[in-house]
Amino acid sequence: MKNTLEARHIVKRYGDFRALNDVNIAVPKGSVYGLLGPNGAGKTSLIRIINQITMPDGGDILLNGEPLEPKHISQIGYMPEERGLYKSMKVGEQCIYLAMLKGLSKSEAKAKLEYWFDRLGMQGWWNKKLQELSKGMAQKVQFIVTVMHEPDLLIFDEPFSGFDPVNANLIKDEILQLRDQGATIIFSTHRMESVEEMCDHIALINKSNVVLSGKLSEVKQQFRNREYAVSLITQDNARTLQSIPDLYNAEGIELSGLDNTLDFKIRLPEDITIAQSLNDLTSLGELTHFSEIIPSVNDIFIKTVKQDG
């Protein structure tokens, strides 16, 4: 698959501090790429380098195979985490100005804006000043400013903060639709459920290094550790619990449901097959549920960051 963006051996120093230390990422075309990491890990530094806001001290960036140059700004759309627009400027004028900075002509910008205003239900906002809008409304304007020049690469830093659930969903759908139309999306967030929902690739940055990257399904594969969720209906719960073999590492035991179902989690050692464990479990009672627990992004994140120290 072709990569929209490749960052190779990126190094960024601020004085004595290394914000990025030999960072490599490859963002495949048409993907939603999750850029994860704890606060201060270096995500924003990397995003700023991709946006040519700051220059790396080492390494290079390729956009669609070409070394990144100032002319590429029109192919990138960026929504920073800290949102900001001119407060006392009218919405329409402001959007046109920012679109023209990205290389659109005035008439193109106007046409695009009308389309987006219509689409997001913002008719009548044209002559309003930004300070008259609510935070959520301003966020919508910010979103349009980011996407209206139809860039190949869209970078969203915490795109859903400040939106109510309805509007967050609306924006999520818009982002996915942009992907379907061929845009590549880099998505930096701390909200793991939205990563789970939207991203197909991730990279985890911790302490200036990429500690984990790749296709989300492959990363999960790597972190899967034979954990299963089990539900059993038994005659005597206390006796059953005692008879679960120790080697299954049962934990998180709870009672639930109308039939006093016993819910718990097991982790199978390497030498025990699923069939074998099923045999053992059915002998204890009526097995109503048995499924693999796929590690969540949240778990992966916490585990990796903790391991990294």
Partner: peptide, 17 residues
């Protein structure tokens, strides 16, 4: 100062030097 405190600066300098 206005552009800096508004944070619009980041958007603008992602477009121009």
């Amino acid at each position: 100062i206005e552009e800096k405190t508004n944070r619009i600066i980041e958007i603008i300098i992602s477009s121009i030097k």
